[in-house]
Simulated scan of single mutants.
Amino acid sequence: MTEQAHHTPTTRRGILFGAAAVSAGALLTACTSNESNGRAATSDDRQAGGLDDKPGKHVTIGFAGPQADHGWLNAINVNAKSRARRYKDVTLEITEGSNDTAQQIGQIETLINKKVDVLVILPADGKALTQVGLKAMRAGIPVVNLDRVFAPPQAYRCWIGGDNYGMGLNAGHYIGEQLKDKKHATVVELAGIDNLELTRQRTKGFDDALKNYPHIEKVGRQAAEFTVESGQSKMAGLLQAHPSFDALWNHDDDQGVGAERAIEQAGRDGFLMVGGAGSRKAMDTIKAGDSVLKATVLYPPTMSASAIDLARALAQGKGIGGMAELEIPASLTLYSAVVTKDNVDDYLPTGFH
């Protein structure tokens, strides 16, 4: 059971530090769209509904995003910018984006000094940037913490992000159902960077799902680095070590490009591949149906568009349409949908390059 905040007149700083935590697992469309058909779309592809999009008090949102050195990270920046353009009452102050913690801290402190109304931050390192999140909150600037979480909840007003455990869980269930009629099946895993908590969560979810399918055995695992080159070299190693297997779970569609190259070079088929994140290339390949890649599990970069919605709502004192509470939730975990040939057309607009 979650505790809900009482709506009482208070200071801005009191709202930031006194709001009770409300956890909410939600589809992205639940907080950003009035559409009832469940179709996923980018921020430019659908009306900016769900949250009240009638023009209100002008809001300046500071956005401290990542360095766009990966397809998913670039999509984070693109979705935030395009969403902000939908609102006539929003000005977006954007930093250059950095994976260097000291540089990003300096950029965020500049936004604090500019007295922006609200901050949206995807930290290069959540723990390392906790103090600057706390600094903003103490200055009365609400923080929407995007994906990589700050250490204590006091450093942000609202967290929104993906479900790494759910990615692995849903990948495992999909593979399990595809192989349920095989008496003894084997799978291999091409993970991401092993010292990241997100990688460990994706593996744990996958392993937990496979417990429901005792006839399936995971026989191999290699950790890559979320790059095309590492995906190709590590997949080549898996293929060499395992002359046959029935399924492959690959954590990331960018490194999956390299994995597919290794598979083609080895002339291998006879197994199914499930990717992760939801790139446009992966979705196009799934739709074409001429590859071992049969599905990808989403980690939606459109979360940054929703973060802009939430930041605007915080600054204007609004809640989320379709929810009874007067305040926005303290936490929103996005669902990791499995995209297959059957539903790929619904998700194509969200695919990132």
Rank of each mutant, 00 (worst) to 15 (best):
S336D: 09
D89Y: 15
E327M: 12
T101G: 07
I286E: 01
Q178D: 00
G176E: 05
T11N: 12
G49K: 10
G322M: 09
G205P: 00
D208A: 13
V187L: 03
Y165H: 12
T199P: 02
A311L: 11
A305C: 06
A64E: 07
K281S: 06
D163P: 03
A75V: 09
Y335D: 00
S233C: 10
M1Y: 12
V292H: 07
K127C: 11
R13T: 11
S279N: 07
T110I: 12
K341T: 02
Q240E: 13
V22T: 02
Q131K: 15
K180R: 13
N113P: 08
R202D: 00
H173C: 05
F206I: 02
R268P: 03
I121A: 04
V338L: 03
K183M: 09
R157D: 10
G161M: 02
A295N: 01
S304Y: 00
L334I: 10
G50V: 04
A313E: 00
Y156D: 03
S304N: 04
S336R: 02
A247C: 04
S279T: 10
K57I: 05
P300W: 01
Y213C: 11
G289F: 11
L326I: 04
K281M: 05
H58Y: 04
K114R: 15
G351F: 06
T333W: 04
Q67F: 13
N212K: 14
S230V: 09
D253F: 01
P66C: 07
I263W: 07
E325L: 14
D345E: 09
H215N: 15
G317Q: 09
F352A: 00
L248I: 10
P243C: 02
G231H: 13
A68H: 03
K211Y: 05
R83Y: 14
K294C: 01
A48V: 06
V78C: 03
T29N: 11
D147K: 13
G38L: 10
L298H: 06
Q131A: 13
A124W: 07
H173S: 04
D284F: 04
K182R: 08
G317N: 12
G192D: 00
S336I: 03
T350F: 02
L190H: 07
A84R: 13
A21G: 00
L198Q: 05
A277H: 06
N77D: 09
F352T: 00
R148Q: 05
V257K: 09
T227M: 12
D45G: 15
R39K: 12
V143I: 04
D246E: 08
R138F: 05
A185M: 08
A337R: 13
L272F: 09
G278K: 04
L310P: 01
D147T: 07
A266H: 05
G50T: 03
K183L: 10
P123W: 09
Q104D: 08
D246Y: 08
V339P: 00
A324S: 12
A311F: 07
Y347W: 14
T95Y: 04
L129N: 14
R261H: 12
A185L: 08
P66G: 00
G25E: 07
G258D: 08
I193R: 13
M235E: 10
Q178A: 12
A26T: 05
E35M: 12
